[in-house]
């Protein structure tokens, strides 16, 4: 198991992406988490370099969502360290806000603000967190809406959009904060099959731009195409991690083999 893998050199999108050798984006050291008496995350060690694209896979209840939710402190960890962009996450609210400003998150259920228009959804945080003037924030928002290919929806409310469109808006909303890291928590699991592709395309283009990404997803095609590392979790632990090629063709751990045999038909 290599800690940080190099690009494979295969003629995929991956070859164009740069991974930093020196700049660590996220470092998790000996981290444990409990829900009351239940030990959800056990001894997690993970180092993510800038520009890395990591897919986290595993059966449900394995703690993969909890892990990425710990990275922007939506969940608290009880033991060990989590360091994001050089800032260690502690109970200190200032530090938490500092980390959250630089870490975008996309949720399974989009979590758009239903009482605000799409444009307001996108400009709220840039205006109030970053202090960007409204006109400038709106220009940025329109730029990202164009990037996710729905500029014409700017003045609608989230409820008027399809699931795929809402998820693309959610991605654009995170991008408007110009984060250094993007976390994806099963971004396509709540979508109709027809809409999965449009969301994955946005995520792939984001990866091509060199965004550091952590994705919890069951889209193994996406993992093969974009990820430079796949992490497999079970029972709150990292069981196996490898380059996608090796991970899919030659899994080592029994649990990984079983998992892959069940999801790849």
């Amino acid at each position: 198991m290599s800690q940080v893998s190099e690009t494979t050199g295969a003629p995929t999108a991956r070859s164009t992406m740069q991974i930093s050798d020196t700049n660590v984006a996220i470092e998790v050291i000996g981290m444990h988490k409990w829900y009351a008496d239940f030990h959800v995350l056990r001894d997690i060690n993970l180092k993510v370099m800038e520009g890395e694209r990591i897919v986290i896979a595993g059966p449900s209840g394995s703690g993969k969502s909890t892990l990425i939710r710990c990275i922007n402190r939506l969940e608290e960890h009880q033991e060990g360290q989590i360091i994001v962009n050089g800032t260690e996450l502690t109970a200190d609210l200032k530090r938490i806000d500092e980390v959250r400003r630089e870490v975008g998150m996309v949720f399974q259920h989009f979590n758009l603000f239903p009482h605000l228009t799409i444009l307001q959804n996108l400009t709220l945080a840039p205006i109030w967190v970053r202090g960007i003037p409204k006109a400038e924030a709106e220009a940025t928002a329109m730029h990202y809406l164009e990037r996710v290919k729905i500029p014409e929806q700017a003045n609608k409310f989230p409820g008027q959009l399809s699931g795929g469109q809402q998820q693309r808006v959610a991605i654009a909303r995170s991008l408007c904060m110009q984060p250094r890291i993007m976390l994806f928590d099963e971004p396509t699991s709540a979508l109709d099959p027809e809409m999965v592709k449009e969301v994955l395309e946005v995520m792939i283009s984001l990866a091509e731009d060199g965004m550091t990404m952590l994705c919890v997803t069951h889209e193994m095609g996406f993992a093969r195409q974009v990820a430079n590392r796949v992490i497999f979790m079970d029972q709150g632990q990292i069981i196996e991690q490898n380059e996608p090629e090796a991970f899919f063709s030659n899994p080592q751990h029994e649990r990984t083999k079983l998992f892959l045999s069940q999801i790849l038909h």
Binding site: L74, D97, R100, M105, F113, V129, R173, S174, M177
Partner: peptide, 15 residues
């Protein structure tokens, strides 16, 4: 999810 989306964008509690 609404609380979490706000938090993940870096908005403070009062915001």
């Amino acid at each position: 999810g609404q609380y979490e989306a706000g938090a993940s964008l870096g908005l403070s509690y009062w915001q």
